[in-house]
């Protein structure tokens, strides 16, 4: 039976979409509001965007977020690539290995964040950017792993056999055939990991030391001091970056072989 024939399918769908997206639309709209009070509209302006560009704490937080997301997603993608290649062939314990790799997707993040904090404190690792990079790398691995794994599963082993048949040794085969064919998956995985790290609040909040605030942590503390249109502007920028990167990752993942 055609789903569209159920009564009120269209109305319910519209209501759900409205509930999900109206707050985001309102937030974006008010980032262009000239009034100091976030909820009263006066006239359009780019003042708040100019303001965030010149605010030194926002600049520092943005820089931290970018360094953190870049370092963590490069490390996570590297580990995920090795893991995907290692779990390619069947071996005893393969499915267990995959579950452990993907565990961060379902574990409650607050638990992992607290546990990581306790671990770092007991090991004497000082909190700050280094600690955050370690923790972000760990939870970004599954986000990088899944697209790489999907790409690898779709890759026929006969390409590599053909390369070896044509006198390429294992390393040359990897460099000339496996890696180029895997590349869209690797880029998709990197982008997803980057967005995930950029967006993370909980882990960063627990592990940020003095002077290493990230953008989400900055937004959180700024909101406690009162909602200003500045927050709307930063949030809109983050939203745009995330949408761009996720779209990029999606298109890379679908790139023809």
């Amino acid at each position: 039976m055609n789903l569209r024939r159920f009564p009120a399918t269209r109305e319910v769908s519209i209501a759900v979409l409205a509930f999900l997206y109206i707050p985001v639309v309102v937030l974006t709209a008010y980032s262009f509001n000239a009034n100091r009070t976030a909820t009263v509209w006066t006239h359009a302006s780019f003042d708040w965007y100019a303001r965030i560009l010149t605010n030194p704490s926002i600049q520092a937080a943005t820089w931290n977020s970018i360094v953190l997301a870049t370092a963590a997603s490069i490390a996570a993608t590297g580990i995920a690539l090795m893991a995907a290649l290692a779990t390619r062939r069947a071996f005893p314990g393969r499915s267990t290995t995959e579950s452990v790799l993907n565990l961060p997707l379902i574990l409650p993040e607050i638990v992992v964040a607290v546990a990581t904090l306790l671990l770092f404190v007991s090991l004497g690792i000082s909190l700050g950017l280094g600690a955050m990079i370690l923790a972000h790398t760990a939870f970004c691995i599954p986000f990088a792993y899944l697209p790489i794994r999907a790409r690898l599963d779709g890759l026929s082993g006969s390409y590599e056999e053909a390369a070896q048949d044509l006198y390429a040794n294992r390393f040359r085969t990897f460099r000339r055939v496996t890696m180029p064919l895997l590349w869209p998956g690797v880029m998709a995985g990197f982008t997803l990991a980057f967005v995930t790290s950029l967006d993370d609040f909980l882990t960063s909040f627990f592990l940020s030391g003095p002077g290493t605030t990230t953008l989400p942590v900055y937004i959180f503390s700024a909101i406690r001091a009162g909602i200003t249109p500045e927050i709307n502007a930063i949030s809109t920028v983050m939203l745009l970056i995330s949408i761009l990167l996720v779209s990029l990752s999606f298109f890379l993942g679908r790139l023809r072989r």
Partner: peptide, 29 residues
């Protein structure tokens, strides 16, 4: 190993490298 044998294979599904041109495929070995 296969890369040290003086034989070449024509595969059932051809296994042409999709990221290379025809000329690059033929010049691979």
């Amino acid at each position: 190993p296969p890369f040290r044998r003086p034989v070449n294979t024509v595969f059932q599904n051809y296994a042409l490298f999709p990221h290379m041109t025809v000329e690059q495929n033929v010049g691979f070995a």
